[in-house]
Write a protein that binds this DNA or RNA. Structure first.
Lengths: 140, 140
DNA sequence: TCTGACGTTGACGTTAACGTCAATCAGTAC
DNA sequence: GTACTGATTGACGTTAACGTCAACGTCAGA
């Protein structure tokens, strides 16, 4: 017998809330807004693994500064449920649009990291000069 | 004589608003909140190039999902105005903390870009199968 | 001097994204 | 049955980040 943990086939609302460290209220809100869809077992929400992934995508989107509406759009990009060519071309355009946004974000994250590096260096320098204030310090 | 554009030594509120495509109200709000500081020429706000940079940092932060409070912290990381070693060490810790956040954001941006790529491929495939629905399509 | 563009300060309104609370129901444990 | 746990649906409250509007100041140009 093997001890590998099987991924659950379904999740309760509080399981998801605990896993992602959010409140059930938030999940219910996403549900109301149609970002998640849930089966009901006598009124009680039950989420499939696919919905759990959607939730992950929503939270990732939030951390990157996307609104819930934008995250909804992004999620909808993953299934080409639209069948006709016009819709597909439109979807393709929006995918490429989002890519532009994300590449900008990537550039800005990198630039911000560079800034932090120099800030860190300044900080370290200031610290070391505090620690050894007189040794070999040639002042004019 | 040369025709190079000298960078202005000062900016009015509407100049900045136009440059960054935001409203003067937003700038005034940042000013109130102490994210920007302004000289006053008979009541009228005047911004230095340094404040203009701060504004850029604020907007970049927003696009990456930072709150105004977080952006304020990040901006404050760039000048080691605190002199004593304790403060500097604390600052250093927070810099490294922010770096963690940013590196996570970077990973997530990259992962999101990958997702978009596969979404694009799916879309393109669906399109091409629509365009040539009968040719060489071997169905079981 | 009057006008118009641009600025100011309140003060209140708005939207997104939940938080909070109350009343209620459904399954389990004793 | 009863008590407890965890879920539900309203309904209203809250916070951040501005928008909007009114009333007013200021300064250059005709």
């Amino acid at each position: 017998m093997n001890n590998i943990e099987k991924p659950p086939a379904a999740y309760s609302i509080s399981e998801l809330a605990n896993e992602f460290d959010i409140t059930t209220r938030a999940i219910r809100f996403y549900d109301e807004q149609g970002l998640l869809s849930s089966d009901r077992r006598s009124g009680v929400r039950i989420y499939s693994p696919a919905e759990r992934i959607k939730l992950k995508l929503i939270l990732r989107g939030k951390r990157l500064g996307f609104s819930l509406g934008e995250s909804r759009e992004i999620i909808n990009m993953y299934d080409p449920s639209s069948e006709n060519s016009k819709q597909l071309q439109f979807l393709l355009d929006r995918i490429r649009e989002k890519r532009q946004q994300l590449e900008r974000k990537r550039r800005e994250v990198n630039s911000m990291l560079k800034d932090l590096n120099t800030a860190e260096l300044n900080c370290i320098t200031a610290l070391s000069e505090l620690a050894v204030p007189t040794r070999q310090k040639n002042r004019k």
